[in-house]
Design a protein around this nucleic acid. Structure first.
Lengths: 350, 350
DNA sequence: GATTAGCACTCGGGGGACGAGAGTGCTAAA
DNA sequence: TTTAGCACTCTCGTCCCCCGAGTGCTAATC
């Protein structure tokens, strides 16, 4: 059964009001500001029905009403009016998108900070992936007689390096051969395919540099493993304490430690992802829709960006359940659209 | 003028008691638990003198006393009994030190987390530097026809890389030459010495790959600049909210945003560093001894580690002014000693 | 002279009591 | 169907009061 137009307008007015003031909303206020030309009594009746339908909640009997998770859900799906971002916000985002950063990690950090500033909420950015990530290329070179640098490039373009200590000073040619062995044995392999026996076989071809092969191959494994997990960057953590719903240190602490432990964010992303999320689309995950307890009074607005075929990332904005979804969505949408275009245009070749 | 032995014992008892219970300490408690065999009245007299001397403070007239910054200072310098870390703590630290991590960043993160867990306070780790940091070596190689990776190694052993887009697919030989040009022009130069005109001169030698030279040289500048600033990793942020002195969200928020903005930590390290800090030595910075306002009710225990001649780092533990200095110092000391040894033994060659 | 017992005094905090205010639900009238 | 009116409920802030912890001072004691 769908709601009457008047109920919808009342619900929207209540949520708008509550988002702004964080205080239970009474019938009088809606009558005065709701532009509905009905009396508070009528609104009261409607409100009581909206409560029965599960869209509103009453903290206690003599207080106003507060939106429920279902109420917010309806709000973000159908009621709220999409907001335009302001010129200055657009400029800030464009400036960030236009700057010459090219490495993914830096971009993500920078953008997380920017979005957090613009919206005044906490943000996270996360790179996730398909587990089919492989090593695309190895490179090894000497920086000191007994110290080599190994560089690993993954199929989705991630770059990691590691210093490797050597037992003796090898010649340039030996390094060249070792690099070739690495590339022969371990490129185009997933984490599961890099077995111990494969490492042993490769090492046996490398003569004196066997230990180098082992070290680098294990390092490659680590890199793939880390990539599988994904990196998480947080920004604006302290803003959590701005919201009245997190004045209670216990609650704030709970959310904070949930967010700072990257496992939680990764899990959340996975749970809300398995299905049909299109890159560039904005999504909401509100209150009890989140499975993890620390998020049950929080709201998350998130969207994805796409890094070629293997790597997908999430940018999320975390606030109280009563967050300004319209404003946040506008910012995130503008940003993600630009970001995805940027990635497509200039970051990846394929 | 130095304090009588009895005053010192009383002061120590008060601080021990306050550190444990976070409540103003009265004369009766000290008489009962202080093992001094004097009556509360005597203790009252001594306490009132200790207050006149500036070691104690009275929140209000009818409450007990609380240590002042000067009180804590005396405590850490002379009164507290150095603590031994427990066997299990030592084991945890040894295990972390023994693991095969070799890249600095990972070690720092891992150790920050460990120390935060062991002490239940917030930790930060910071790499700082002398501004004489230079590029020691460049390396460039292709991963795709039009994409090169540039690797920069600094004199203190930091390793960074960047993907560089090229206008056309160069030959191996061109890349080799470009690498040589980079190494000729820009190694052993400090940030200030890498001037625009130098970049131009180098680029003019590189023919078609001029843009590569410019990109990499600028990247080297960025790396040196970042190294000058230092990296900061935080752990256990949410633990701030455990301490009763940060129950007030305003105060917690103030400290939190101070810590999450790395500038604050960097400034603090610089201010408390200019002088004579020996690597491996534990230091304290208590309450109003900190210049920055958000730290005025906090305590910091920190120590340094040494990475060759150019790079020095700080590991710090942040808590309320009433923190368990003895315990924290024991942990940090054990860890830093081991860490410095590890760095000397195996991380750097020189 | 140092220590201590005794005592009056101070002050913060906890625990009602109370009233104001906001909001509701219901009833009856329009 | 809407609305005015009204009784009712509940929270919150305030005031008040008392209790208890702790102090400082004085006078007695070691």
């Amino acid at each position: 059964m769908s709601l009457s137009d008047r109920k919808r307008r009342i619900l929207k007015a209540i949520i708008d009001e509550y988002i702004e003031n964080a205080e239970p909303v009474g019938s009088k206020i809606i009558a005065a500001r709701g532009r509905l030309d009905v009396s508070p009594a009528t609104i009261r009746n409607e409100m009581s029905e909206l409560e029965e339908l599960g869209y509103l909640e009453q903290p206690h009997i003599s207080a106003g009403r507060v939106p429920s998770t279902a109420g917010y859900r309806l709000y973000v799906n159908e009621l709220m009016q999409p907001q335009q971002i302001s010129v200055s916000e657009a400029e800030a985002i464009n400036r960030a998108l236009g700057s010459r950063m090219r490495e993914l990690e830096k971009m993500l950090r920078e953008f997380g900070r920017l979005v957090s500033q613009l919206t005044n909420y906490t943000t996270y950015t996360l790179t996730t992936h398909a587990s089919s990530e492989k090593v695309k290329k190895f490179d090894v070179f000497l920086i000191e007689p007994r110290t080599a640098i190994a560089v690993v490039v993954t199929s989705s373009g991630i770059l990691k390096n590691k210093r490797i200590k050597l037992g003796y000073p090898p010649s340039e040619n030996e390094i060249f051969i070792a690099t070739r062995i690495l590339n022969m044995y371990f490129t185009e392999k997933t984490l599961d395919e890099i077995s111990l026996s494969l490492i042993k076989r490769a090492a046996s071809e490398a003569g004196e540099l066997a230990s180098l092969i082992v070290d680098v191959a294990e390092f490659a494994g680590e890199v793939l493993d880390e990539t599988r997990e994904g990196d998480v960057y947080l920004d604006g953590i302290s803003r959590i304490l701005n919201h009245p719903e997190y004045r209670d240190p216990e609650k704030a602490q709970e959310l904070l430690s949930y967010l700072t432990d990257k496992q939680g964010i990764i899990r959340h992303a996975q749970e809300h992802f398995s299905d049909d999320v299109l890159p560039g689309q904005i999504r909401y995950s509100i209150g009890t829709e989140n499975n993890d307890l620390p998020l049950k009074d929080a709201g998350i607005v998130y969207g994805t960006y796409d890094l070629g075929k293997n790597l997908q990332g999430v940018i999320g904005i975390v606030g109280p359940r009563r967050m300004d979804y319209a404003k946040v969505a506008a910012n995130l949408n503008y940003f993600i659209t630009g970001f995805n275009k940027l990635l497509k245009d200039s970051f990846f070749t394929e």
